[in-house]
Amino acid sequence: EHQTACDSYWTSVHPEYWTKRHVWEWLQFCCDQYKLDTNCISFCNFNISGLQLCSMTQEEFVEAAGLCGEYLYFILQNIRTQG
Rank of each mutant, 00 (worst) to 15 (best):
E1K: 07
E1T: 09
E1W: 11
E1V: 06
E1F: 06
E1D: 12
H2W: 08
H2N: 10
Q3G: 10
Q3E: 14
T4R: 08
T4Q: 09
T4Y: 09
T4W: 07
A5M: 11
A5Y: 08
A5R: 10
A5N: 14
D7N: 09
S8P: 11
Y9W: 15
S12F: 03
V13F: 05
V13A: 04
V13L: 11
V13R: 05
V13G: 01
H14N: 11
H14K: 12
H14D: 09
H14I: 06
P15R: 00
P15E: 03
P15D: 04
P15G: 00
E16L: 11
E16S: 11
E16R: 14
Y17S: 14
Y17T: 13
Y17D: 13
Y17K: 13
W18P: 01
W18E: 02
T19M: 00
T19N: 11
T19I: 01
T19K: 08
K20G: 03
K20T: 07
K20H: 09
K20P: 08
K20L: 02
K20F: 01
K20W: 00
R21N: 13
R21Y: 08
R21A: 12
R21M: 07
R21H: 13
R21G: 09
R21L: 09
R21F: 05
H22D: 14
H22K: 08
V23K: 06
V23F: 04
W24C: 15
W24D: 03
W24I: 03
E25F: 02
E25C: 04
W26K: 04
W26Q: 04
W26G: 01
W26M: 01
W26P: 00
L27W: 00
L27I: 08
L27T: 04
L27R: 01
L27P: 02
Q28K: 12
Q28S: 15
Q28H: 15
Q28G: 05
F29D: 14
F29R: 06
F29K: 07
F29G: 02
C30H: 02
C30L: 05
C30V: 09
C31L: 07
D32H: 14
D32R: 13
D32Y: 09
Q33H: 13
Q33F: 06
Y34E: 07
Y34G: 07
Y34K: 05
Y34T: 00
Y34R: 06
K35G: 13
K35T: 08
K35F: 04
K35N: 15
L36W: 12
L36A: 00
D37Q: 07
D37Y: 00
D37F: 05
T38Y: 12
T38G: 08
T38R: 14
T38Q: 12
T38M: 12
N39L: 06
N39V: 07
N39Y: 10
C40N: 05
C40I: 06
C40S: 15
I41N: 01
I41G: 03
S42I: 07
S42M: 09
S42C: 08
S42W: 04
S42V: 06
S42L: 08
S42E: 11
F43K: 13
F43T: 09
F43M: 11
F43V: 08
C44G: 14
C44M: 11
N45Q: 11
N45Y: 09
N45W: 05
N45V: 08
N45C: 06
N45G: 05
F46K: 03
F46A: 03
F46N: 04
F46P: 02
F46I: 05
N47S: 06
N47W: 06
N47H: 09
N47R: 10
I48L: 08
I48C: 09
S49E: 07
S49D: 14
S49Y: 01
S49H: 04
G50D: 00
L51P: 10
L51I: 11
L51S: 15
L51V: 12
L51Q: 14
Q52W: 04
Q52D: 08
Q52Y: 01
Q52N: 06
L53H: 02
L53S: 01
L53V: 03
C54G: 01
S55M: 10
S55I: 05
S55V: 05
S55T: 09
S55Y: 07
S55F: 05
S55D: 11
M56D: 00
M56C: 01
M56W: 14
M56H: 03
T57Q: 06
T57G: 07
T57N: 11
Q58Y: 06
Q58W: 01
Q58S: 07
Q58H: 10
E60Q: 12
E60W: 13
E60A: 08
E60R: 04
E60V: 03
F61Y: 01
F61D: 00
F61S: 04
F61P: 03
F61N: 03
F61M: 08
F61K: 03
V62M: 07
V62D: 03
V62Y: 07
V62G: 07
V62H: 04
E63Q: 09
E63I: 04
E63P: 03
E63N: 12
E63Y: 01
E63R: 09
A64G: 09
A64Y: 08
A64S: 13
A64E: 08
A65E: 00
A65L: 07
G66D: 04
G66P: 12
G66C: 00
G66R: 04
G66A: 02
L67R: 14
C68L: 05
G69P: 04
G69H: 03
G69N: 01
G69I: 01
E70I: 05
E70W: 04
E70N: 10
Y71Q: 15
Y71V: 13
Y71H: 15
Y71N: 15
Y71S: 15
Y71F: 10
L72E: 01
L72T: 03
L72D: 01
L72K: 03
Y73T: 00
Y73F: 09
Y73H: 08
Y73I: 01
Y73G: 02
F74V: 14
F74A: 15
F74R: 15
I75H: 15
I75A: 15
L76F: 09
L76T: 00
L76A: 03
Q77M: 08
Q77P: 01
Q77V: 05
Q77T: 08
Q77I: 04
N78E: 15
N78A: 07
N78M: 06
N78W: 05
I79Q: 09
R80K: 13
R80A: 05
R80C: 07
T81K: 14
T81M: 11
T81V: 10
T81Y: 08
T81P: 04
Q82N: 14
Q82A: 11
Q82D: 11
Q82T: 13
Q82V: 07
Q82W: 06
G83V: 10
G83R: 13
G83H: 14
